[in-house]
Design a protein around this nucleic acid. Sequence first.
DNA 1: CGTTTGTGATAGTAATACTATTATTTAAAA
DNA 2: TTTTAAATAATAGTATTACTATCACAAACG
Lengths: 227, 227
Amino acid sequence: MNTTPLRLVMNKNLYQRDPQDTELGRKIIQESIKMIDELGFEKFTFKKLAEQIESTEASVYRYFDNKHRLLVYLIAWYWVWLEYRIDFGTQNIESPLKKLEIALDILAQKKVLDPAFPLVDETALFRIVIAESDKTYLTKQVDEDNKEGLFRGFKSLCDKIAGFVKEVNPDFKFPYSLISTALQASHQQLFYSDHLPSLTELGKTNEDVNVANARFLREMVFRSIGK
Amino acid sequence: MNTTPLRLVMNKNLYQRDPQDTELGRKIIQESIKMIDELGFEKFTFKKLAEQIESTEASVYRYFDNKHRLLVYLIAWYWVWLEYRIDFGTQNIESPLKKLEIALDILAQKKVLDPAFPLVDETALFRIVIAESDKTYLTKQVDEDNKEGLFRGFKSLCDKIAGFVKEVNPDFKFPYSLISTALQASHQQLFYSDHLPSLTELGKTNEDVNVANARFLREMVFRSIGK
DNA sequence: CGTTTGTGATAGTAATACTATTATTTAAAA
DNA sequence: TTTTAAATAATAGTATTACTATCACAAACG
């Protein structure tokens, strides 16, 4: 089966020059995902990246103002992608309960390569999201970054799922709080199961970590909203 | 009313030389809390700290191997302090449900100066916890740091509250996951209400943010475990 | 009284996160 | 096809960071 290659539309403030437009830009995306995954964000530098893609630091700076912005771009891409997958998965579904279930499932699902986006290695990007996504907003410049709309992807996703919650139970007082908590938890629990296993049950049962994660999320969310 | 000044016992791997032992060490703690709160962790450096306390970079390095370790120390101190407050608050309480309630309340409570620890500005430290605590473990060296026991404070706290959960409902499958999620959420929701308000209900009602936070946490935890 | 211990003073280093300039290649417009 | 503009490469340079190393001094301690 074939899939049309797609292009996610990203907020223009996320980049200086659109990396999806040029060969060099695409290399920056591809290679930075690989390198941040391997080195971690702090050890990753534009210099090392430029060496890898056989270009120069100055050229990379033409696409992204700094490495923080590049990280924000990658994470934003992930959230936009997730929302697209949830839109896709909940297409033609009537029941809000069912839609919520599907959304949580997609969240927790093991990530595999999406042929619609050959540019991006979603499995590596997912590891980056788990380990680095909080760093996008845990800075002194959150407010300015937020004003520029850099976190729109995350907010939009949260809004969508919170919308399902409101449909399921219009009386529940904390749909946004609950869903933003669930979104975070979905990554955190995976990080814990890998590195601080005494903080989670995931990985302790004989079922797959991702499946256990999905069960945990579903239980927490559904019980919280009283279903 | 008077309180005896206390000293929390910290894991020896958290420091090079115990900062609680000397005048300089105590200044490092006091001033670093102030500076990290103001500058944020990335802009904070040992050089700037040394200038403030009228000492030298080299002297600071005698107490902490690097600034990451100093952050880990401060955050660890906070968790140990919280656990001590929860121990205190649940003293002589029989009902596990009540104990759980108290623990969550203490978690979400607005933090004020604790006269038992005149060295530490708990309000500033709390802001640091909200904005920086995740950075203690979101690194490539988590596993080594964890082996050294640097995260014992957090794990111990999580273990204690999860213990209450198990007492309340021995059949619940995810006590650790739920409590580690709640611990994180308690800070995250406050951060969101300050900087990304569309992700949370806190701050939208006419009640105090901390009170709303406590209600959210209680609702999420109690409903999840079926009480 | 001598020695350990903590601190200060100073110097130095490799790496980071940029900025700036010029030259060269490539692609689009005339 | 030529002109011209845009994109990139090459190179250099800077302030700051996160350390490490050395030596000297003063207090405290046994």
